[in-house]
Amino acid sequence: MSALLERDPRRLFAAVLSLLEAKGMLSEADLAERIALTDAATPGQGARMVARAWVDPTYRALMLADGTRAAEALGIPMRGAPPLGVLENRPGLHHLVVCTLCSCYPRAVLGYPPFWFKSAAYRARAVRDPRGLIAEWGTVLPAGTEIVVVDSTADYRWMVLPLRPAGSEGLDEAALTALVREGDMIGVTVPAFGR
């Protein structure tokens, strides 16, 4: 391994960028374009899928069978993204997603992984004590709820389809979309109405 790798990674990055630009392999415009595309993927995309699944049983079935096609059906760009799997929470069954080896995250539908998802504490604790872990968000599941932890170790990316919260019966799809947060689709929180 090159001793140069011990240098400040921020300086390494600046140096590498300058070399790639000098070689004609990259421009500032390429970076800006890629950043804009990446910033466009946000938890709002996944929230739209969840809300649609709550109101449309046909869409729900599609989402559970093939998350990638379900995302594309709502106009979410999935080309080049890993296959998306969807984990269905049911009364008495809760899912939590982690990547213990690195930070695999359903970026196409949730955006950049949040800081906590990438932390050593989250990665270590999730597979062993998910109840204690999600309590850090104040999440307490009904007694008797089974928790299945999904360690995202390979080519799929996983999102949770959470339970539609009690009291939300009168809400339309747009209002339901606004209820769904990033953590609800990883399983550290659950959607609540009127929080």
Partner: peptide, 13 residues
Amino acid sequence: SGVSADGLLVELF
């Protein structure tokens, strides 16, 4: 000890 997960799903080759 110290386990509160009921199931664990892992992608394996």
